[in-house]
Simulated scan of single mutants.
Amino acid sequence: MNPVRYRILGTTQALRPDGTPVAVGGARLRALLTVLALRAGRSVPTGLLVEEVWAGDPPADGHAALQALVGRLRRALGADEIASAEGGYRLSATADTVDLHRFERLTSDGVHALTDGDPAKAAVLLDDALALWQDPPLADLPDRTTEAARPEALHAEAVRARAEADLLLGRAREAVPRLRALVAAHPYDEPLHALLIRALRDTGRAADALAAYETARRTLAD
């Protein structure tokens, strides 16, 4: 039997095996599904669920409110999808059925392929990873700042590694737009500046490469 698939990069969704979306209505319900999917296959304590679903401002009887939400989520997804376990609840899903965890695995595999000297394999894996990305990740968490920090950092790493794969494959022209966008988002990342300068040089744009070097020098000095 094919499993339900979950998307938590961007707006939280549940998809049946045929691709039909499951109606998961209400911000609290999507927040609950997000917290469970972040830890797919693992028990999440009720206290942590209440804390994250209500962002530190739980109702008077948080545990009762959580039980009601879990009941609604079970009706939407199917009773077997949400198990009671070890003082909490567990989403009965594997990591590979959750887009965030697939993104993390593909990014890690792509970076390792690049390190191992196989930029062609790295490009394929990183393209698959980046195709999953939606911004902002974990959009349905009331307070996404902490939980979103790791996927956002991995996204920057994936874009950087993908651009480096292009350079190694002789595709500097394709790498330049990726690197310009990444440098704009992370102006104090020296290795990114170096990659952009290299990409511009490899496309024969010596003057632009020198200008990018001067911009990097001033930015990092400031």
Rank of each mutant, 00 (worst) to 15 (best):
L138D: 02
E152G: 09
A156S: 13
G71W: 07
E81Q: 14
T115Y: 04
H112R: 15
F103M: 08
R160S: 12
H101Y: 06
V159F: 01
T107H: 03
A158W: 03
R72F: 01
P187Y: 11
S84L: 10
H155D: 04
A123E: 14
G88Q: 10
L141R: 05
A120R: 14
E81I: 02
G117T: 06
L182M: 05
A153Q: 13
Y188M: 14
I197S: 01
R105C: 00
G88M: 12
L154E: 12
D127Y: 00
L106P: 02
D128N: 14
P119F: 02
A131Y: 00
D80W: 14
A148W: 07
T146S: 12
A129C: 10
L125I: 05
P142N: 05
V124Y: 01
A184Y: 12
A76H: 09
D135I: 00
E190N: 03
P136N: 08
A83V: 15
P187I: 13
P119A: 10
R198A: 12
T146R: 14
P142G: 06
D189F: 03
A85T: 08
A161I: 08
A129N: 08
T145K: 13
A76I: 06
H112W: 03
E174W: 02
A199W: 10
R144N: 09
G88V: 09
A79N: 11
D109F: 04
T97V: 13
A161F: 06
R180I: 07
T97F: 01
E81F: 10
E81R: 15
R144C: 02
A163S: 10
L200W: 07
E104W: 11
L192A: 08
R180H: 08
T115P: 00
P142D: 03
P191Q: 10
P191G: 08
L106S: 04
R102H: 00
S84W: 09
R160F: 09
E81L: 15
L154A: 09
A199L: 12
A148T: 07
E86S: 12
A93Q: 05
E147V: 06
R162V: 03
A131D: 15
D135N: 13
Y188N: 13
L195Y: 07
A153V: 00
D118T: 11
V183F: 06
Q134C: 11
A185P: 05
P187H: 11
H186R: 15
T97S: 15
R90N: 01
R150G: 08
V111A: 12
A148P: 06
D135P: 03
D128I: 04
E190V: 12
V70F: 10
T146K: 13
G78A: 10
H193N: 03
A85Q: 14
Y188T: 15
A165H: 03
W133Q: 09
E157H: 12
L130F: 02
P151A: 07
A139Q: 12
D109L: 13
G170W: 10
H155K: 13
L196G: 01
A113P: 03
D128R: 15
A172N: 03
D80A: 15
L141H: 06
G87Y: 11
G88F: 11
L169M: 14
E174H: 10
A199T: 12
R144A: 15
R74L: 09
R74S: 07
D109H: 11
H155I: 02
A129M: 09
A129E: 09
